[in-house]
Amino acid sequence: MIDVQYERGVYLPSLDLWLDPWDERTTAFISHAHGDHIGNHREVILTEITAQLMELRLPGDRIEHRLSFQVPFPFRGAELTLLPAGHIYGSAQLFAQSDAGSFLYTGDFKLRPGRAAEPIAWRPAETLVMETTFGLPRFVFPPTEQVIAELIKFCRETIEEGATPILFGYSLGKAQEILAALHGTDLPVRLHSSVYQMTKVYNDKFHHLPPFSLYRGDDLAGSVLLCPPYVNGTRLVQSIKPRRTAMLTGWALNPGAVHRYQCDAAFPLSDHADYPDLLRYV
């Protein structure tokens, strides 16, 4: 069995390899480019897309091993293989095989097919380290199609009332998932600058994203505005009148989510696996 330790990040002592560590380490596997997973490590193992996204968010000099999915990479006496995790674009799981045994680290993942992420793949391993964000039985996400249908209804009704729908989702991953969901609806979509920057990287690969444009404070009539959650309550949002706001997060299943996020609506659209999918995965 491959030995596993934990100290603010998973550590594989036999490979001297850290997995998504919180602190700067010598060698680290970066599962995806969300802010809480990237760091200024000296040597990193990651996918091409994660590397590109990380370059945008945390520029720096480091040794990068940009690996393709499913292609084994010999590393310190073991063989590492990256598998798509379905969490966001470029997100990967790490499979390690050595004389000591096999090991699989999921990073953040979801089983439901994402519209803006590679479909997940997996293989059995002796040791599994997995994320459990929604690891309580009450977290059961409704079918994605249904959530999206309700989301589109929300946007259309808001526009019919003469207001601007403003959707909040993380600028990386969630925002593109929303964008892809609105594909084919003829709803014009405007992006907040931080969403816009990330979406440009996505657009190289996912051609089924609908047309989008940067919001520069101009007229929004009839459009949907996509913003990162932190801008809710700022002048940028408050200057848009009238408006109806919606938060898109798995935590929308919690009672009181609408109140908590100070939005008009909340939709359970998540980049993580829900409870039944966590069980299925195991």
């Binding site: 934990y6 998973v10 459990t132 690891g135 309580l136 039985p137 069980l279």
Partner: peptide, 21 residues
Amino acid sequence: MHGYAREFAEDLRRRGIEAWA
């Protein structure tokens, strides 16, 4: 790890799977 790791690990152990947070 993350979120409800301890609860989920307990849950898995009840289902007969060796799991810890």
